[in-house]
Design a protein around this nucleic acid. Sequence first.
DNA 1: ACCTGAACACCGTTCAAGT
DNA 2: ACCTGAACACCGTTCAAGT
Lengths: 224, 224
Amino acid sequence: VSSKSEKRRPAGAKARTLNRGRVLEEALALLDREGVQGLTIRKLADQLGVTPMAIYNHVADKKDLLETVAKAVIEGAQFAQPGGEWHERIRNCFRELRRVCLAHPSIIKITQMPGIAPTAVFHPMHITLAALEEIGLSHQDAMRAHFLLLNFVLGQVSYEVYGPYPDLDPANSPLRGNFSDEEAARIAPAVQVEWDFDAAFEFGLSVILGGLNALHSCHDHPTS
Amino acid sequence: VSSKSEKRRPAGAKARTLNRGRVLEEALALLDREGVQGLTIRKLADQLGVTPMAIYNHVADKKDLLETVAKAVIEGAQFAQPGGEWHERIRNCFRELRRVCLAHPSIIKITQMPGIAPTAVFHPMHITLAALEEIGLSHQDAMRAHFLLLNFVLGQVSYEVYGPYPDLDPANSPLRGNFSDEEAARIAPAVQVEWDFDAAFEFGLSVILGGLNALHSCHDHPTS
DNA sequence: ACCTGAACACCGTTCAAGT
DNA sequence: ACCTGAACACCGTTCAAGT
């Protein structure tokens, strides 16, 4: 990350000393360049001009490597914004989470890999909880609302990174066997409208925050 | 799936003929028994008493195998329920999606693996869209609402399968470095309340459906 | 304390050969 | 048409050895 002359390496030549920072830095670069499948202990060692086993002096195992890289990226976020209403603070919080995830698209895939515990994504929790308890939600409901928001945001980012599924492309006629002709006809108009990820994201946040607001102003849920 | 005497195999002995159905059936069994890491072409072949390469006569590659198994499980769902109000139809739809996913917990991990296109999860889409357009949402908003619901449901199921993260256990004192002492103190009461997945799921659906309802009854979002 | 080299126990998959 | 056996190109990781 820091590009001061701590260890200037002349473009491709191997640096002489390894440390945890350089391993993680190069892992993130490799991840951005070749994706999750391309981030391999052996390729990483190659990239660092070192034997695969040298990596293990700075990292416990591959799981540790992946978790640490993901954590570093997410901790680059500035979740806490100064003021604003409760819903605006929550919005900013999750906008920021989305932003840092999209800056390194493969990060979100790491957090979804079996065996990886992406605990860093919980970081904005204290902001959500504080804002929601401010409008009178119980600890329990605030926690549930936080997971609702988090699941939506991470799911959207993931969908955003994988890109629209070809099976939803109406050019593939009966939508590749997932729908009957009748069903396909019914969803066709909705599928054809152009998809704007930013707008869909803001829409989702609005709906959730609106629902939470309704929960707060009147105490029987209109749809339960 | 069918247990009629099509090819009764005497408990561990290898059957004489292989077909796509038996491959998929055994793959699902192996998945349930050993998880996503345990489902391997070679172990699957072992289980079927056959050489690894024999699998490839009935399945294009591992990606095809995983996608087909996931699809088969999800297609076991009964999404379409007879009547009920618009929000009740949507609720039933996603309850059913959650149910079939939880019946084979590793399925959700497959749908999240990089390179796998879990298109079968889109199946309930036509029901959501129809219900939402019934209350006056545009094609565009209906589509966005569908993805909001889907992302929430899949995210919740995933969290449910992985189990609560140890980093959120307040027993691990400063919540293992993800929170400052101050933040940890603020979230502690919320983290300590017992977590009920069923209740959290219904809460999330209620909030989203409540938000959608508000969108429908008055046209400026109270929180935008 | 850190790095190397060879090896182990696995993967998915290709290919030529059998029936 | 379907199965086999050997091989290839990879993985993550252990271990003993070097400095």
